[in-house]
Simulated scan of single mutants.
Amino acid sequence: MENNAPETTTKNSMLKNTLLIAKFEIKKMLFNPRGLIALIAFALVWLLILLYPISGASSFLINPDFRGIIEGVFGPNTLSELFKWPVAELAVYWIAALYIFPLFSIFVSADQFATDKARGTFRFLSLRVGRDSLFFGRFIGHMALQCLLLALTVIATILLAITRDMSLLLPAISSGLIVTMNLMIVLLPYTALMAILSLYANSARQATIYAILVWAAMSISIAIINNYLPIISELKWALPGAQISLMINTQGLQTFMYAPVALIQAAVLLFLGKMYINRSAL
Rank of each mutant, 00 (worst) to 15 (best):
F101G: 01
I248K: 06
G56W: 13
I37C: 04
G252P: 05
I155F: 07
K27N: 11
F101P: 01
L193M: 12
A110L: 04
I232T: 09
Y52T: 15
S80A: 15
V186I: 13
R34F: 12
L188C: 06
F42K: 09
Y52W: 15
I21W: 10
P86C: 11
F66S: 11
W94F: 13
L270M: 12
S55F: 12
M257Y: 08
G72I: 10
V92R: 10
A144G: 05
Q254N: 14
V129M: 11
I95M: 12
T153D: 07
I244C: 02
G137A: 11
Y210I: 02
L150K: 08
A5R: 13
S245C: 00
N12C: 12
I264A: 10
I244D: 07
C147F: 10
P189G: 08
E234Y: 07
L145E: 04
L168A: 09
L187K: 02
V108Y: 05
T191K: 01
L199S: 06
M29T: 06
Y93R: 10
D116M: 04
A38V: 07
A5E: 12
I49C: 11
N3E: 15
V214C: 05
L47P: 08
F24E: 10
L282H: 10
G141C: 12
S233L: 00
V214I: 12
A161C: 08
P64S: 07
L160I: 06
E7C: 07
P76F: 05
I54R: 08
N63M: 10
T115S: 14
A110Q: 05
P260M: 06
A201N: 02
I140P: 05
P102K: 08
A262F: 14
R164L: 08
T163E: 09
L199I: 00
I222M: 09
L30P: 09
K27C: 08
E7D: 13
L169F: 13
Q254R: 08
T78C: 08
L199Q: 10
T18L: 14
T250V: 03
T191C: 02
T208R: 02
I222A: 11
T191P: 02
T153H: 02
T10W: 12
T163P: 00
N63W: 09
N3Q: 14
Q146P: 03
T208C: 00
K16D: 13
L239H: 10
Q243P: 00
L39D: 02
L177N: 04
Y210Q: 03
A267F: 14
